[in-house]
């Protein structure tokens, strides 16, 4: 059984089909990149996989559970228990320190544990920056805090939205290395990206165009820096 299954999913906004009969399977432990140009439906797909939106029709199974018909509250619980989120804009809480930002995810999930939060920061190489506020951290450091926050509750799936979109090359490499480690440890990763190089690091690439899946594992040829991937 796949960890995530989208079956004939439609998402309609008025006359616009943001997702048009999309079917995707993601296995546990897989590293998948979802790529596509602007307006292709990447964000809509990400919202649905991340339990932040519901499809207009079709089925979405996460760990065997149909999440397409769940209430807002039930979706919140799934998001809290099973999903780790990484954002392009980092979205750290400005008035909390790095370690406190990680603990916020624990707070909503179960019990905050500062020692465990520190371990997560250590893992992303930021133990010495734990007491710093986001404004005192570089973009790369902020994204690494975001990664530590995403993995602190041992989610079944980590969803990353353009995780390197705001990073320089050096920090992009650090974040991708972290993803490699997580993948090696068996974490399921779904990365939405414009960047072909980032996409190329994934095991499998799903390409969306005009709300449809146009290729899986195939060559991609759009956007800047397009390149062939496996």
């Amino acid at each position: 059984m796949s960890l995530l299954e989208m079956k004939n999913v439609y998402k309609t906004y008025g006359d616009l089909n943001a997702l048009d009969d999309v079917s995707i399977n993601i296995e546990a432990g897989e590293w998948v990149a979802i790529m596509g140009p602007s307006g292709s439906g990447k964000s809509t797909a990400m919202n649905i996989i991340g339990c932040m939106d519901k499809p207009t029709s079709g089925q979405v199974l996460l760990d065997g559970q149909d999440i397409s018909k769940l209430s807002r509250r039930e979706l919140t619980e799934i998001r809290r228990d099973k999903i780790g989120l990484i954002f392009q804009q980092f979205h750290l809480i400005s008035y909390l320190t790095a370690v406190e930002n990680v603990m916020v995810a624990q707070y909503y999930h179960s019990l905050p544990d500062e020692a465990e939060a520190m371990e997560a920061l250590e893992r992303v190489g930021l133990a010495d920056r734990a007491k710093h506020l986001p404004s005192q951290l570089s973009g790369g450091e902020q994204q690494r805090v975001c990664v530590a926050r995403a993995l602190i509750n041992h989610p079944e799936i980590i969803l990353a939205d353009e995780p390197t979109g705001n990073l320089d090359e050096k920090n992009e490499r650090i974040v991708l290395d972290l993803f490699r480690q997580l993948h090696a440890e068996g974490t399921t990763l779904v990365v939405v990206t414009h960047d072909a190089e980032v996409g190329a690091t994934a095991q499998r690439v799903i390409t969306l165009e005009y709300g449809k899946v146009t290729s899986e594992d195939g060559d991609i040829s759009f956007g800047k820096g397009s390149s062939a991937i496996k």
Partner: peptide, 23 residues
């Protein structure tokens, strides 16, 4: 390094940080 923090302690930590650091 402290270990597990109670929910209430974290709650207070968050709201006091918000009031104190967003003066």
């Amino acid at each position: 390094m402290t270990g597990k923090t109670s929910k209430q302690a974290m709650y207070l930590r968050m709201i006091t940080a918000s009031v104190a650091r967003r003066k």
